[in-house]
């Protein structure tokens, strides 16, 4: 693929590559960070990458269909629910240990 063509014509692969990059960055954040809140933020990044994929496939499918965009709403709902529960868990950890480090999660049982 000539580099000029790739710069001029933005297509499906551009969006998929951006989505893959964003997903990988989010995964890196989930694995490397210790702060529970930053881990939740990285998960939001990964879900956004998935949303970009849905919308891009819906735009570039041979027949125009909006199913991909409908899926984005479900992903957003799940993301909001996950953020609410995760932040409630983070508050529980903070109340006990005055810190939101992921290593305190193991003390929450019982």
């Amino acid at each position: 693929m000539p580099i000029n063509d790739a710069l001029l014509n933005v297509g499906l692969s551009h969006y998929l590559i951006l989505s893959a990059l964003l997903f990988t960055l989010g995964l890196l954040g989930v694995l490397l960070r210790r702060n529970v809140i930053v881990i939740l933020m990285s998960i939001e990044l990964m879900l956004n990458a998935v949303n970009i994929t849905f919308v891009a496939f819906s735009r570039y499918s041979p027949t125009a269909n909006m199913d991909g965009q409908a899926m984005v709403f479900f992903v957003m709902t799940i993301a909001a629910a996950e953020a609410a529960v995760g932040l409630a868990l983070a508050t529980t950890i903070f109340k006990k240990f005055r810190e939101v480090n992921i290593r305190y999660f193991e003390h929450l049982k019982g």
């Binding site: 960055l25 989010g26 890196l28 954040g29 930053v38 990285s42 990044l45």
Partner: peptide, 10 residues
């Protein structure tokens, strides 16, 4: 902008 902000996040 997206990738740069994601880098700052992590």
């Amino acid at each position: 902008m997206t990738v740069g902000s994601a880098l700052v996040v992590i």
